Amino acid sequence: MIQLLVMAKAPVPGRVKTRLCPPCTPGEAAAIAAAALEDTLDVATQISAVRRVLVIDGDYAAPPGGWERVPQRGVGLGERLAHAFADTALPGVPSLLIGMDTPQVTADLLTAAAVTLRRDGAVLGPADDGGWWALGLTDPADAEVLPHVPMSRADTGKRTVAALRRRGTRPTFLPGLRDVDTAVDAITVAALCKSGHRFPTIVADLLPAAGPVMTGSPA
């Protein structure tokens, strides 16, 4: 068993998904972010875990169903990620951390990631933009490398892997996913989401100029 961490920012206009503006207004960008977070939490609730923790920046309640809520702390994303692993550590229980920017993630993918994490000790899911969408560690101290890794760059994933390897940790790669930064990302990712999810519906409503968003297989 593993524990699952969801690293997120409260969907407040002007503080989330600012790269969606334009064409979105800050309020529309926040609505898209809220849908991405809600879909991610719904999927995360479906997998087997010792504990589920929402590691949140801002005011946002933990979902029902046994979720815990831990505030983010630190200066900069790398420091916040390192503290997320440290502040939620459970002795002998690996932690799988994901973000809120890949609402196309599925319960099957997270379950497979958890199995791989238990088997191999560390996992990393690369993102199409060069970052990563998931990081799983058995030893939370390994996350101490993250404040020294430049974040939100085309080589963030490679630098993260290199930093972990220098500590003697060799993460197994998970399937890659595209995260949502721009309107083009949102439209592309929405087409990969299962029908019935909030994200493809709101993207179709708020970004109609890009054409209809076709959803994937039924939930």
Results as ranks from 00 to 15, higher is better:
T169R: 14
R15M: 12
R165G: 03
D120M: 01
V12Q: 10
A204L: 10
S217I: 14
V75L: 09
V149L: 07
M1P: 11
P147M: 08
C21P: 08
V16M: 01
F199I: 12
L4A: 12
C193R: 13
D181A: 09
D179H: 15
P171T: 04
I2R: 12
L177D: 05
L81T: 12
T160Q: 08
A134V: 10
R153Y: 02
R52Q: 11
C193E: 06
D142W: 14
T45W: 04
C193L: 14
R80P: 02
A29W: 08
D42Y: 11
D128M: 13
L135Y: 05
A122N: 02
V50I: 12
D128Y: 09
L4W: 10
P175W: 05
L54T: 00
V70N: 00
P94I: 00
A107F: 06
T111M: 03
R198P: 06
M214V: 15
D42R: 15
L20W: 05
P212W: 12
A84C: 13
V145S: 02
D57L: 09
V105N: 04
A127N: 11
F199Q: 02
T102E: 08
P171N: 03
R19K: 11
A8I: 01
T156I: 03
A34P: 02
S195G: 11
L81C: 12
R178Y: 02
I98M: 04
P63F: 01
T138S: 07
G157E: 02
R52F: 07
P94M: 00
A154H: 14
